[in-house]
Write a protein that binds this DNA or RNA. Structure first.
Length: 528
DNA sequence: CATGTCACG
DNA sequence: ACGTACGTGACATGA
């Protein structure tokens, strides 16, 4: 069958329609078939029409648009311990399931494509960004990234030893044994037995043992610090140093993530199994994990990230003169903001003022309140209010922009990115004040996060198209929201760095420059 | 499967 | 009185 289908599937002039076609493309790739000619994907149609609405899997879409209950995968294979591989399913059941898959996909296409076709901006996002991106992502997933599994295993051993020591310490301090991994047991010790004050609660109303809560009581008792140290190590070990070596594909010797193209409401990608978009970077111990992401002999890792892309997008979308000037002058934008808010020259900005300005800049993009700013900076609410008032006085365009975004959300029920991608806000008219406020914050953030997502996707398409003519000099391996990671032949570094920079910087024409920082190294950490 | 926690941008 | 900074994915626990 594969032999009969191969010429059809590989013929780009024969148009293909799929539901989550990237999945099928990857399966067929494992059987030596290079699918060409994908023109439609109903999952992506649904996602571009409304990223917020629902999940975009076939069962959900069939129910929603066709009022049809599909045969579920688990109906055919069973589930849990008794589940069998699809290859073990009897041919009659497999045929029914697979035939329905094709039938429903075409019927979904007839339901969704007319809606998309009639809205030019959405159609362009779909046709010019999402559909062509499918093949780029499929190849990134298939390529995988090389990791130094032995180094990670060694780090796991070290972490285990230190965790054991911390466990012994914790037992001695607490006066009894308990599971350091159990928030419930820890809560009983800290707040019932030791009577430490409850300063933070969980969303469920329980006394929290999270980092903020433990840090707040660390001055009153020695146990919280030990737990914090233990937690830091436990996270690294369970999620990364144990897990990543176990996920190396024996056939390729590499780790292969899956990119979610219809998950994040703003248009971002997600990464799973394993998630390569949350590899540690903020601590030295964490960076050792990044050091295990390596290049093969004769190759280097090249990491290219957009500098301050969301703030630049804020400058562009708001048209605020002050913010645009900071970027045009090539200034340190947080320093520039500090100078404005605190009324000093940029040279006189102290580190604390810069840190506060950075918090303000980021917080504003998330719709943060004075209360939130006060908490983030550990200052009085009145002072935070003053800072924000001064910020908006200095950057009036930003305030106007944010009010306009809120207005659009209330009027239309959605907001837009620079390229016309829509993000619907389901709770913008909620009678529940907290929900409504949450929707307003999401509305503020979505145009910036979403435009950044559009831009890097456009850059990926441009870079990929260019790399095809570069004789396998470089391979795009990962995308981490504002960063692209490549492996590049050592002999070709300079040309590839220049080409990548040019295409990433040129992925959108903004009122401010798009700056790309690029590093080269033997591993992902060195490349930063 | 829900909850709490924590890794990233 | 409550909640208060957006978007994700993965892990361990415990019912």
């Amino acid at each position: 069958m594969l032999g009969a289908l191969k010429p059809v599937l590989e013929d780009a002039t024969r148009p293909k329609l799929g539901q989550h076609a990237k999945y099928d493309i990857n399966v067929l790739s494992n059987y030596g078939i290079d699918v060409r000619g994908l023109v439609h994907d109903t999952m992506l149609q649904s996602y571009v029409l409304n990223s917020t609405a629902t999940r975009h899997d076939m069962d959900t879409l069939a129910k929603r648009h066709l009022a049809y209950d599909t045969i579920h995968y688990e109906d055919v294979t069973g589930k849990g311990a008794k589940q069998i591989a699809f290859s073990q399913v009897d041919v009659d059941s497999a045929c029914r399931y697979a035939a329905e898959d094709s039938d429903i996909t075409l019927r979904l296409h007839h339901a969704l494509w007319p809606q998309l076709q009639s809205q030019a901006a959405l159609r362009a996002v779909y046709e010019d960004i999402e559909i062509p991106l499918v093949s780029v992502l499929a190849r990134m997933e298939q390529r995988g990234v090389l990791i130094d599994a032995a180094a990670l295993r060694a780090q796991s051993q070290q972490l285990a030893r230190r965790m054991h020591e911390l466990t012994e310490q914790a037992f001695a301090i607490a006066g009894r044994n308990f599971s350091l991994d159990s928030p419930k047991q820890l809560q009983a010790i800290l707040f019932d037995e030791l009577k430490l004050p409850i300063l933070v609660k969980t969303p469920g109303g329980q006394p929290s043992t999270n980092e903020e809560a433990l840090a707040a009581i660390a001055s009153q008792h020695e146990l919280p610090r030990v737990i914090l140290d233990y937690r830091g190590l436990a996270k690294l070990r369970s999620t990364y140093t144990d897990k990543l070596p176990a996920m190396v594909n024996p056939r390729t010797g590499r780790v292969h993530t899956s990119y979610g193209q219809a998950i994040a409401t703003t248009g971002r990608l997600s990464s799973s199994d394993p998630n390569l978009q949350n590899i540690p970077i903020r601590t030295e111990e964490g960076r050792r994990i990044r050091q295990a992401f390596v290049a093969p002999d004769g190759w280097k890792i090249v990491a290219a990230d957009y500098s301050q892309i969301e703030l630049r997008i804020l400058a562009h979308l708001s048209g605020d003169a002050g913010l645009m000037a900071a970027f045009h002058g090539g200034q340190d934008v947080h320093r520039a903001t500090a100078a404005e808010v605190f009324g000093v020259s940029q040279e006189m900005v102290d580190p604390n003022q810069r840190r506060a300005a950075k918090t303000i800049n980021f917080g504003l993009m998330y719709g943060m309140s004075a209360f939130g700013l006060a908490r983030a900076l550990g200052i009085a609410r009145g002072d935070a209010q003053d800072y924000m008032a001064r910020y908006f006085a200095r950057y009036p365009g930003v305030q106007t922009f944010m009010e306009e975004v809120r207005e659009q959300a209330r009027r239309d029920g959605y907001v837009e990115t620079l390229f016309g991608r829509r993000v619907y806000l389901d709770y913008i008219h909620s009678r529940n004040g907290a929900q409504r406020a949450g929707a307003e914050r999401a509305a503020i953030n979505a145009p910036m996060q979403g435009t950044a997502a559009d831009i890097i996707k456009r850059a990926m398409l441009a870079v990929d198209a260019w790399l095809i003519d570069q004789a396998d000099s470089a391979r795009m391996l990962m995308q981490v929201h504002d960063e692209l990671v490549f492996e590049v032949r050592e002999t070709r570094i300079d040309a590839i760095v220049a080409g990548v920079r040019e295409r990433m910087a040129g992925a959108a024409q903004l009122q401010v420059p798009l700056v790309v920082d690029i590093g080269v190294g033997a591993n992902w950490d060195e490349a930063h």
